[in-house]
Amino acid sequence: MSALTLTPNLSGHDDLYQSLVALHEGLSEEDSLKVWAKLALLLANQIGDRRVIEAAIAAARPAA
């Protein structure tokens, strides 16, 4: 079984989606990339379990 939760695990999906879009408003693509990276680092630290994070990285990777 995957360590990663792949079923809905929070509420307010539209609100969250909007927050993520708003995060990038007015940013250059370069700055946007950096903001995504900061978010990933903050969330990775919050999760705190490298198994879960590695599973998420694997799930995010484009299919070969």
Binding site: E30, L33, K34, V35, A37, K38, A40, L41, L42, N45
Partner: peptide, 20 residues
Amino acid sequence: TASRALRDAVLELAGAHAFA
């Protein structure tokens, strides 16, 4: 570009937060 963004993200966060 993406790995530079990640590196700079670490440095920006490290100034303010111990976790980074």
